[in-house]
């Protein structure tokens, strides 16, 4: 397994370089270093000298990808791309263009994102699996048909509607929890209830249907018939056999999104005023802070690759027949 992991890590390197290059190209197609300087220096009374000084100070006065004035290897290393990218591979995110320590900001802001995302994931998992098992158990009945119709209705509603509707109903009309906001320590709990609830409800439709389909597929397999023939009770069959054997697609669905939990939810964080990594990235894009954008994209890529690796490893845990080689 170690060789497999090592090989996957080595495969990841060109992927990360590619992602970095694409991010770099996309960012600088839209923003030039002069634009960035103007954005950071403000809109009023900015002189060309101030722009040049800002670029000089922040290392944006070099060519983007190729330095024709330098020779040999320097023509590639004395560029903005090299200077700004190489330290990422050592997870040194450096300072944002506005002078903040990005690593410190990420460490601070991942917790609010996790505080919302983890309970949403765990509670959601319990709800979606239970709901899907219920529908699978009553397959073909009115309960199943009603459940599927409900899923389709829930899937058809925009995520924004859940957020605004949830805030309006629970926070504004019923006065049960704060409409938005966040706090530190235990005080944060009351701010997590509504976003978690909305996060879970908003995904019941899609996840309910997805897991139901998986369970129905499992229910048609030979081992289920054999178990029934041997007198296994229906609840035991569902929870001990069907659920266990359906774990591979379930795990694929979960582990892949695990890294994304760190990255936060863009809309949810914005509407609830949650100071997570989602809003951090959005703010950076709006403020043309390339240092943060590239760091977040890099981090997202690393976590995604890690997630895929974890998925592969988790397969071996739930299915002893699978070997990584």
């Amino acid at each position: 397994m170690l060789a497999y992991i090592l090989r996957r890590v080595l495969y990841a390197l060109p992927i990360l370089i590619g992602v970095n290059l694409i991010t770099f190209a996309l960012f600088f197609v839209v923003n030039t270093p002069d634009d960035m300087a103007r954005m950071h220096l403000g809109m009023k009374r900015v002189t060309p000298e101030a722009i040049e000084r800002w670029k000089d100070e922040h290392g944006y006065n070099m060519p983007l990808l190729y330095n024709a004035e330098s020779g040999g290897l320097d023509s590639l290393t004395e560029t903005i791309f090299f200077e700004k990218s190489v330290k990422l591979f050592a997870f040194q995110f450096g300072q944002s263009d506005s002078g903040r320590d990005i690593g410190h900001d990420i460490r601070q802001r991942m917790w609010p994102s996790l505080l919302i995302a983890l309970p949403t994931l765990l509670l959601g998992l319990v709800v979606y699996l239970s709901f899907a098992l219920l529908l699978a158990f009553f397959r073909g009945s009115y309960i199943d048909i009603g459940g599927v119709v409900l899923c389709i209705i829930l899937m058809s509603i925009s995520a924004l509607f859940y957020i605004i509707g949830g805030q309006y109903l629970v926070g504004k009309m019923l006065h049960l929890v704060p409409i938005s906001g966040f706090d530190t320590g235990w005080q944060a709990l009351k701010f997590t209830i509504l976003p978690v609830l909305i996060g879970v409800v908003a995904a019941i439709g899609s996840n309910g249907r997805f897991y139901r389909a998986i369970f129905l597929e499992e229910l048609g397999r030979d081992y289920v018939r054999t178990a029934r023939a041997k007198g296994t009770s229906e609840p035991r069959l569902m929870f001990r056999h069907v659920l266990k054997n359906a774990m591979i697609p379930v795990l694929t669905n979960i582990v892949v999104i695990l890294p994304l939990l760190f990255m936060g939810s863009l809309i949810m964080e914005s509407f609830f005023g949650i100071p997570g990594l989602g809003s951090y990235t959005i703010d950076a894009i709006q403020n043309q802070d390339f240092a943060i954008v590239r760091s977040m994209v890099f981090l997202g890529s690393v976590l995604y690759i890690l997630g895929l690796l974890l998925t592969d490893i988790s397969y071996t845990l739930v299915d002893p027949r699978i070997r990584l080689s």
Binding site: I164, Q167, Y168, G171, K172, H175, P178, I179, S180, G181, S270, F271, F272, G273, P275, S279
Partner: peptide
């Protein structure tokens, strides 16, 4: 001073 990025929650909290 609380961070409020969206107008709708801000307005509702003002009314409350």
């Amino acid at each position: 001073f609380k961070l409020e990025k969206e107008q709708i929650p801000y307005w509702n909290k003002f009314l409350q």
